[in-house]
């Protein structure tokens, strides 16, 4: 993207952010709170201290990956909202791989576990892509339904077939074992998921920007007929973008297992997938933008606790803030390309 396009995106996003802060400030003021004090606390909770930053980045890590689940297929003109399901499926596959690999050297095993998670998530969304291409099933609806189905399958699996019966108070899967856990990045309280998230966004960016594949995807996303006319393999491109998107969310699931829980359970289903949709749109489906937006959203949710404890704001305040921001940013989409001459971003 040209520098002017970057400047435009930055200007419009800032404007949306400003509008959001004003509207949300009004809501907060209606409760008799001082919006300025609330925003100051929000900043402290998100970025104000080293711990806040650790908190923010921890929460941002899965969002970077689930954002890619929407962002990559979006480049090909698809609207996939199945990150939640792909994450769950990826988490389960990671557990299975970890259990199968018991005794293997940890570095190898962890690599294969993450690979299994990504593969499972990728296939999960690729299935929706296949249904789209060969059966005409709308991918938004099918990935939405697949989310619910993935959760049901997870609940069933951890209630009996792959259940760790030694976990007495929780229905959870077999553990992958302490040796196969990634843990925190040394010297920080942030788990390794962050590094994977950033790396995945960088790889996706490179792939979409600097390869023929990326070029072909952009043509497809711009105009399906044009893509067909120049003889692009539309079916394969649809499958590939869906697979990559799903793989990113599957990797998020793998990291939840390998870096946080050590097992799969209903704790995988906490809305990272849905937050990822928001992140992708705020980033205008740009992989590098996903990093920045995930940090912003991570910061909002990290500071949510402080807002609750200091001001008695309900935990859903962060949801409202995100919702307003989402609407505001989408509204600015209408202005994109108007502020500058030349090709629309």
């Amino acid at each position: 993207m040209a520098l002017r396009a970057w400047a435009e995106t930055a200007a419009l996003t800032s404007a949306a952010l400003l509008v959001t802060l004003v509207v949300f400030g009004g809501l907060v003021a209606a409760r008799g709170l001082d919006p300025v004090a609330v925003y100051a606390t929000l900043y402290v909770g998100a970025f104000g201290t080293w711990f806040s930053l650790e908190d923010t980045l921890t929460q941002a890590a899965p969002l970077m990956l689930t954002a890619l689940a929407t962002a990559i297929p979006a480049r090909a003109g698809l609207l996939v909202i199945g990150g939640e399901g792909a994450l769950v499926v990826g988490g389960v596959a990671t557990v299975l791989a970890g259990v199968l690999l018991a005794g293997a050297p940890p570095a190898v095993a962890i690599g294969l576990m993450c690979g299994a998670g990504a593969l499972a998530g990728g296939l999960w969304i690729a299935a929706a892509g296949a249904l789209r291409h060969w059966r005409g099933v709308n991918e938004t609806i099918s990935t939405l339904l697949l989310n619910y189905i993935a959760v049901a399958v997870l609940n069933w699996l951890v209630s009996s077939p792959i259940r760790d019966f030694d976990q007495v108070l929780k229905a959870a899967s077999w553990p992958v074992g302490e040796a196969f856990m990634l843990g925190d990045i040394p010297g920080t309280g942030i788990h390794w998921g962050l590094a994977f998230g950033v790396a995945a966004c960088l790889v996706a960016w490179g792939l979409l920007r600097a390869t023929t594949f990326g070029f072909a995807v952009d043509i497809l996303g711009g105009n399906l007929r044009a893509a067909q006319m120049v003889g692009l393999p539309v079916g394969r491109l649809v499958l590939a973008t869906c697979f990559l998107g799903g793989a990113a969310a599957g990797l998020a699931g793998a990291l939840e297992v390998a870096a946080v829980h050590g097992f799969a359970s209903a704790s995988l289903v906490v809305g990272y997938g849905y937050a990822g949709i928001l992140a992708a749109f705020l980033a205008r489906q740009h992989p590098l933008g996903c990093i920045a937006v995930a940090v912003l959203l991570g910061g909002i949710s990290a500071s949510g606790g402080l807002l609750q404890r200091r001001f008695g704001l309900p935990d859903a305040a962060t949801l409202v803030l995100q919702g307003i921001l989402f609407v505001a940013v989408l509204a600015t989409h209408t202005l994109h390309g108007r502020l500058r001459a030349g090709r629309a971003a």
Partner: peptide, 22 residues
């Protein structure tokens, strides 16, 4: 001090540590 709707994820750890540090 109280916090509601805290999922059993890495967030739980950060919430508890936030209560300690903040």
């Amino acid at each position: 001090i109280e916090q509601e709707n805290v999922p059993e994820t890495a967030e739980a750890e950060k919430v508890m540590e936030g209560m300690i540090r903040h």
